[in-house]
Design a protein around this nucleic acid. Structure first.
Length: 574
RNA sequence: CGGGGCGUAGCGUAGUGGCUAGCGCGCCUGCUUUGGGAGCAGGAGACCGGGAGUUCGAAUCUCCCCGCCCCGACCA
């Protein structure tokens, strides 16, 4: 039983000045967490109980799916990470340290290497597979910008699992098992979420999905088709545009367009000159970028920006993309800022990528590579060539669902889980092989699956709060019932304690506000801030033999006889 | 890493060159009070983020450093 009179807790009356998002603000105010440094937090008793409830739900679901828990150190030697090249690739995001002899160590940002080596150390036959292992471990990433309290920290707890299979089909099966276990886990955590397609990313996997918990303060943007259920991270959203018949389009024609360096100014001139009908979407925007020191041009319709995240996600192998600076323009004398067209790209030695919206056969108004001149009837495939189609235009609300053409909605969310089929990259690099039926050595294929456990605390808080405080789902709350005793007589306090003991004897966890010196108002405010799902008030109503039972989330109140209180609380909790 | 903002007691803050740095919350003591963050009285708590400088005088001005928050870039 948690007793407020002795609980190590101090709630704050004011919002902390350095917290902006709701979960951060409320978790600090209600005395769950305290900041130690940027992106590094301590858990106070209430917070740690809540965190552990979540951790235990995750653990139970992993266990019942047949995955086995192991535990690695957080501090690791650099050698395995050198073998997979991540000691270098991870760059400054990796926390590195040395021992007294000068040997290099790191604080694990993720543990693919260690799991791979662990399996390699124990298993060597196909008969041992499949196997799935997991751990719940503190991870360290020296993010350039930790933010939103516990949502993106530099130290955080992740449940990471890895599956090991002989065959691709086996991997798909293991992946599906994890997917199902994740669905159960997040349902129990009381989270609203969508499972969305993700870009496999630099890890080189094939299939990848993210579990996203919708909330305004989320860092991820995803699209959702409410009709067919298609959901994708914006980076992974695909656009289907069919090739067009350009046989009737007139010849390319250059036109004088003085003072039209922007799309808007160009559209205005075009409409004046040709009697209307032109919009930003009639024009072709040529965005000049440097992709790892290579000049590229990305073509998107004029009414859309290039989404650098989408572009990067869909250009595997490219590490850094940045927009052209004046210095870069200086190296390509043929490019006239504001009047660039793809017609002469080959001549300039620039690789042209196009968004799929710039489909073969489509006709555009674009720059003529001469100051104050544009060209119209510029046809893709006739007047310019595209070296590859890459999803790169920004996605807008109302864009067509790639499956059913319905306009999609766009929403923000927190990534709470990510599952993907890693493949053989790590097994290859670390030489994890088993002998197959024929006695031949085969490289094992892996899946990788993560849940942000500490982040889940914040994600749930984001989704479950109101203006006055937190409202935890029953399974994760630091206690199921918060009993508040008020008044100055002993009776309400004795009654409250008896009630608490009775509930605990039924395995219902209780927090009891037995503070004699705090006024009722303080106790009510605290209870609402802390957010335990059922609040029971033992006070005035006792004169009629009643206690008041409130549901924190709905604000619903009712008075029940003291003797009937336990039964009615049990009913509310089920 | 680019842009913006901020750093004064545990928390929230006032104070833009001039007395002993002010207020609210919280904390301690006493009395009163007990259904919506109670009242009165008394009290403790701050080298004003750090360093250097300008000045008769610096929380306040200048420079450097450190830390924190927000937007963006980044984020298996």
């Amino acid at each position: 039983m948690l007793k407020m009179s002795t609980l190590f807790l101090r709630t704050l009356r004011d919002d902390p000045a350095d917290a902006e998002v709701a979960s951060h603000r409320l978790l600090v105010r209600a005395g769950y967490i305290r900041r130690i440094a940027a992106g590094i937090y301590s858990w106070l008793p209430l917070g740690y109980i809540t965190y552990r409830n979540i951790e235990n739900i995750v653990r139970q679901e992993m266990d019942s799916a047949g995955f086995q828990e192991v535990h690695f150190p957080a501090m690791l030697p650099k050698e395995p990470y050198e073998q997979t090249n991540r000691w270098q690739e991870y760059g400054p995001d990796l926390f590195r340290l040395q021992d007294r002899r000068g040997a290099d160590y790191l604080l694990g940002p993720t543990h693919e290497e260690m799991f791979t080596l662990m399996v390699k150390g124990e298993y060597s036959s196909y008969k041992d597979l499949p196997v799935s292992l997991y751990q719940i471990q503190t991870k360290y990433r020296d993010e350039t910008r930790p933010r939103s309290g516990i949502i993106r920290g530099r130290e955080f707890v992740m449940k990471d699992s890895y599956s090991f299979d002989l065959t691709d089909e086996g991997l798909v099966e293991s992946y599906q098992k994890h997917r199902a276990a994740y669905v159960k886990t997040f349902d129990r955590l009381g989270l609203k979420y969508n499972i969305v397609s993700a870009v496999a990313g630099a890890m080189g996997g094939s299939s990848s999905e993210e579990f996203l918990a919708p909330c305004d303060t989320g860092e991820d943007t995803y699209v959702l088709c409410e009709k067919c259920g298609y959901a994708a991270n914006v980076e992974a959203m695909v656009t289907n545009v069919s090739p067009q018949d350009s046989s009737k389009v007139g010849a390319l024609e250059e036109i004088d367009t003085p003072n039209t360096p922007t799309i808007d100014s160009l559209v205005a001139v075009l409409n004046e000159r040709f009697g209307g009908g032109f919009t930003g979407a009639s024009t072709l925007k040529n965005v000049m970028l440097m992709a790892d020191d290579k000049a590229i041009s990305v073509l998107v319709p004029g009414d859309r920006e290039v989404d650098l995240k989408r572009l990067q996600a869909n250009l595997p192998g490219v590490k850094e993309i940045r927009i052209f600076e004046d210095e870069d323009f200086g190296k390509f004398k043929g490019l006239v800022k504001g009047y660039i067209g793809p017609q002469d790209a080959a001549k300039f030695g620039i690789t042209v990528y196009a968004d799929p919206r710039v489909a073969p056969g489509t006709s555009w108004v674009t720059g003529a590579n001469k100051k104050d001149r544009h060209a119209r009837n510029v046809v893709n495939g006739r007047d310019f060539e595209v070296s590859a189609y890459v999803e790169s235009a920004e996605i807008k609300k109302g864009d067509a669902c790639p499956k059913c053409q319905t306009p999609v909605i766009i929403d923000r969310a927190i990534e709470i889980g990510h599952i993907f089929q890693l493949g053989r990259k790590y097994a290859q690099a670390l030489n994890l092989t088993v002998l197959d039926k024929d006695g031949k050595s085969q490289v094992v294929t892996m899946g990788s699956y993560g849940i942000g456990v500490s982040r889940a605390v914040a994600a749930i808080a984001e989704q479950s709060h109101d203006e006055i405080g937190l409202c935890w789902p029953v399974e994760v709350a630091p206690a199921k019932v918060h009993i508040v005793a008020t008044g100055k007589e002993d009776l309400p306090f004795d009654t409250a304690e008896k009630l608490a003991l009775e509930l605990e004897s039924k395995s219902i966890s209780v927090m009891l506000d037995d503070r004699r010196d705090a006024s009722p108002g303080v106790k009510f405010k605290d209870a609402e801030l802390i957010g335990i799902p059922i609040i029971v008030i033992v006070g005035k109503a006792l004169a009629d033999g009643n206690v008041e039972v409130r549901v924190r989330r709905t604000g619903e109140k009712s008075e029940v006889k003291v003797e009937a209180a336990v039964a009615s609380i049990v009913a509310l909790l089920s």
